[in-house]
Design a protein around this nucleic acid. Structure first.
Length: 494
RNA sequence: GACCCGUUAGCUCAGUAGGUAGAGCAUUUGACUUUUAAUCAAAGGGUCGGGCGUUCAAAUCGCCCACGGGUCACCA
């Protein structure tokens, strides 16, 4: 047990006092009648006299966040999930004993119940006149400072509960995130999509290139991977005839941690039988606009210092055209050999890995010279086939595939393709990936025989899209760090 | 993984020719029946992130470590 501060000691003395008075410091059920917000909206605009005449009764509960104790009457501010409400408590209203109980045992941070009537103070604030004060739960640690709150980023994230008590914005994000997700579900459901859940623990990694977390199953005596994507099982469901499926799920990637990457994050992946790339564009653009209208009722959001207007149609641009524009190299018309491409890469200060092919180099050109300039919502099209192992090729140019990534303010938000459903071609792509892995790309996947077998039963032609939920929440809540939209972001143990 | 910045009272922050550690809020005691960052008076509260070193003397200078923030690298 560490040394107690004087404040902690003082609070424990008050706790003892409650026990002596026969009051459980950690109390019981308390049925409220209103929330803070209920009261404020219900009685807004009424005059002092009207409220006095109506004598409206209420019953509320919450945490004391501000306390103004005076001789025979006091004020305190109660905070519940909806906000703040002021309470007036006086000896004449609650009686000598109840007032003494309040005055001698309450602290900021305590959770209490109040029943009373509504009135307007001289300064015009809607206030609950306490007629009965009920202690519910004792806080034996002091709350962060009432005015500045908790500002230390580390403490805010490690002790999110204090952040939520102190910083309204954190509470707001916590509430907005599920509303965004729910809105997304409503939109997909309205289009006939079925939400499913697929395993987090997998025998094989796949559906993306990323380093996985590995865990061990004791009874099976085998290693399991935490999924790095939901793609493969969802496509098996297309084979099974579900036709329109999506999953909102936690993904795990064993990679670096920074302001846009958390080891576990949430994605939504959606697959539509008989659809293709352009169906996915409609759905992606549609869901984002749907959220902006239904949750936020506005179309302009500030992202990384840029004003982004979602009411405009999203742009479309081809990767090779962008590179031509920025670097003057035309990868489309010139069918460069690998050696030529490597030479161009070196001229342009691009690091070439051992496993690189022309397609990888094209992608590097895009990432180095073009990505950050995609500010307006833009569908980036025409990815090289080598970096897209699960995507149907472009029938007009087999070096590229039918794929798009959605960029806003230089950041990727979605990734979609016309799904590869040819089992022969899929096997070839897996084999190429395996070669890449042998050449040194430790993020390339394995051959997934269970998936190939599913494809052999015929998967309908389909479009699929994956959207980063955390990043979408960051966009809509105008946060620059993923840690601001996760209640409990990954932190090192101290 | 590299570099930069930060870590001082419960919280928010000051604090260099190196010379006994400060404020506001919070706490304790007293006053106060419409306050609202309540006010007034008094008091208590610190191993200055951890370790090592330089020095008569380190919150302050140097080195190492931990954690956090940022930039970059990595990252479909």
């Amino acid at each position: 047990m560490e040394q107690l501060t004087d404040q902690e000691k003082a609070r424990r003395v008050k706790l003892e006092k409650l026990v002596e008075l026969g009051i459980d410091p950690y109390g019981h059920r308390y049925d409220t009648k209103d929330s803070a917000k209920d009261i404020k909206t219900k009685y807004a605009g009424k005059s002092k006299e009207e409220l006095e005449a109506e004598n409206n009764e209420t019953k509320i509960a919450g945490r004391i966040v501000l306390l103004r104790k005076m001789g025979k009457a006091s004020f305190f501010t109660l905070k519940d999930r909806t906000g703040l409400i002021q309470v007036y408590i006086s000896r004449d209203n609650v009686g000598e004993d109840n007032y003494t109980l309040f005055k001698s045992t309450s602290d900021t941070g305590d959770i209490v119940g109040v029943s009373g009537t509504i009135f307007l103070t001289d300064t015009g604030e809607i206030t609950v006149r306490c007629l009965e004060y009920t202690h519910l739960s004792k806080s034996i640690k002091p709350l962060p400072e009432k005015f500045h709150g908790l500002t230390d980023e580390e403490e805010r994230r490690r002790k999110r509960y204090l952040d939520l008590i102190t910083n309204d914005e954190s509470m707001e994000v916590a509430i907005l995130r599920p509303r965004i997700v729910r809105s997304m579900q409503n939109y997909f459901d309205s289009l006939g999509f079925i939400e499913v859940e697929t395993p987090v623990l997998q025998m094989q990694r796949g559906g993306a290139t990323a380093r996985p977390f590995v865990t061990y199953h004791n009874a099976l005596q085998s290693n399991l991977f935490l999924r790095i994507a939901t793609e493969i099982p969802l496509k098996k469901l297309l084979v099974g005839g579900l036709e329109r499926v999506y999953e909102i799920g936690r993904i795990f990637r064993n990679e670096g941690v920074d302001s846009t990457h958390n080891p576990e994050f949430t994605s939504v992946e959606l697959y539509q039988a008989y659809g293709d790339l352009s169906s996915m564009m409609d759905i992606t653009e549609g869901v984002i606009k749907y959220i902006s209208n239904n949750v936020f009722n506005k179309s302009i959001f500030i992202c990384d210092g840029h004003e982004i207007d979602l009411s405009k149609p999203f742009k479309k641009v081809y990767m090779v055209d962008l590179i031509k524009e920025k670097c003057g190299i035309d990868f489309k018309s010139n069918n460069y050999s690998l050696d030529e491409a490597i030479a161009l890469a070196k001229e342009h200060d691009i690091k070439v890995e051992k496993h690189f092919t022309v397609g990888h180099i094209i992608n590097e050109f895009f990432e180095k010279y073009c990505e950050e300039d995609l500010i307006e919502p833009t569908f980036l099209l025409g990815h090289p086939i080598e970096i897209s192992p699960l995507t149907k090729e472009d029938p007009n140019d087999k070096r590229f595939v039918q794929r798009f990534e959605l960029y806003i303010a230089g950041t990727e938000y979605a990734n979609a393709y016309t799904e590869l459903n040819n089992p022969f071609e899929q096997r070839k792509r897996f084999e190429e990936e395996l070669r890449e892995r042998e050449a040194g790309n430790d993020e390339a996947g394995d051959i997934d025989e269970t998936f190939l077998e599913a494809l052999e039963y015929a998967m309908p032609p389909a479009g699929g899209v994956g959207i980063g939920v955390d990043r979408l929440v960051m966009f809509f809540t105008e946060k620059s760090s993923i840690r601001d939209v996760l209640l409990f972001p990954h932190m090192k143990t101290k």
